Simulated scan of single mutants.
Amino acid sequence: METTITEIADGIFRLSTFVPQIAPPAGFTFNQFLVLGDEPLIFHTGLKTMFNFTHGAVSRILEPTDIRWISFGHFESDECGALNHWLAAAPQATAMQGQICCDVSLNDFASRAPRTLADGEVVELGRGKRVRFIDTPHTPHGWDAGVLYEESTRTLLCGDLFTQLGNDHTLTEGDIVGPAIAAEELFKYSSLNPAMGTTIRGLADLAPHTLALMHGPSFSGDGGVALRAGGRV
């Protein structure tokens, strides 16, 4: 395995590790996102077994010890399995997530106390970067699910939303809804619930320009249109 680096928006980097053994022949990507600033943020830590790959990729952009914030979509191994590895590698870093995640999992799991984020809370990273935490319970899955929205670049760090197979593109302006439907049919990963459509349409109202997918290519274009289309499925 190797981890590739792509700048998907100004100061936001996609760190992608492709695993062809998952869902062959298409394979599956695991993506982390590094947001630069005076207090850099990494969104998703990846699996423990992928830590050396991700750490090496971050080292090509900045000193890993400079990481200040660590966050993720929901409590699951590919999202935060390497959290304590990162907390050890970045002594000034603090994990942060929503109230449910901290109360149910993170307060016990993290080797240092996390920061609990309220729905809509904004964290200033410096150099113009700021991320807003948005609760998205059970969307696409996980009671504790949430996303981060980087306001200056209009980049939505989507977690598992729009999960898809393959490694054909790092950044696309094409259809991401159809491939996400295909992945849903294979994995059955969504927690379909009455509030899901409302939650996704609320994200669409942000009018994001970039959608940073954890599994699959990042999307550049009218993210609101893509989210509304996904919310209707």
Rank of each mutant, 00 (worst) to 15 (best):
E2N: 14
T4V: 12
I5D: 04
I5V: 11
D10K: 12
D10L: 05
F13A: 08
R14Y: 00
T17H: 03
F18V: 00
F18M: 01
V19F: 01
P20L: 03
Q21P: 02
I22G: 09
A23T: 04
P24K: 10
P25G: 01
F30I: 10
F30T: 06
N31F: 00
L36V: 15
D38V: 07
D38I: 06
D38M: 07
P40K: 07
L41S: 05
G46L: 10
L47P: 04
L47N: 11
T49N: 09
M50W: 07
M50E: 12
F51K: 10
N52F: 08
T54N: 08
V58S: 14
R60D: 13
L62F: 13
T65K: 11
I67F: 10
W69K: 04
S71T: 13
F72T: 06
H74V: 15
H74N: 15
E79R: 02
G81R: 09
A82Q: 05
L83T: 05
H85P: 04
L87W: 10
A88D: 12
A89Q: 15
Q92F: 11
A93P: 02
A93M: 06
T94H: 13
M96N: 10
G98D: 07
G98V: 09
G98I: 09
Q99K: 15
C101P: 03
V104Y: 07
V104A: 12
L106Q: 05
N107E: 12
F109R: 01
R115Q: 05
T116W: 04
T116P: 05
L117Y: 01
A118Y: 00
A118I: 05
G120I: 06
V122Y: 02
E124C: 08
L125S: 09
G126A: 09
G128E: 09
R130V: 07
V131W: 04
D135F: 07
T136H: 11
P137V: 04
H138M: 08
H141K: 13
G142D: 08
G142H: 03
D144V: 02
D144L: 01
A145S: 14
L148E: 11
Y149P: 06
Y149A: 00
E150I: 01
E150Y: 01
R154T: 13
R154M: 11
L156M: 01
L157T: 06
C158Y: 03
Q164S: 06
L165A: 08
T170H: 04
T172F: 00
T172I: 01
T172D: 02
T172C: 00
E173R: 15
E173K: 15
I176T: 08
G178W: 06
A180D: 09
A183T: 11
K188Y: 07
Y189P: 02
Y189Q: 04
L192Q: 12
P194V: 06
A195Y: 11
T198F: 06
T198K: 10
L203H: 14
L203K: 14
A207M: 12
H209R: 13
H209I: 09
T210K: 10
A212N: 01
A212P: 03
P217K: 03
S218D: 11
S220K: 14
S220L: 15
S220R: 15
G224K: 02
V225E: 14
A229E: 14
G231N: 13
R232H: 10
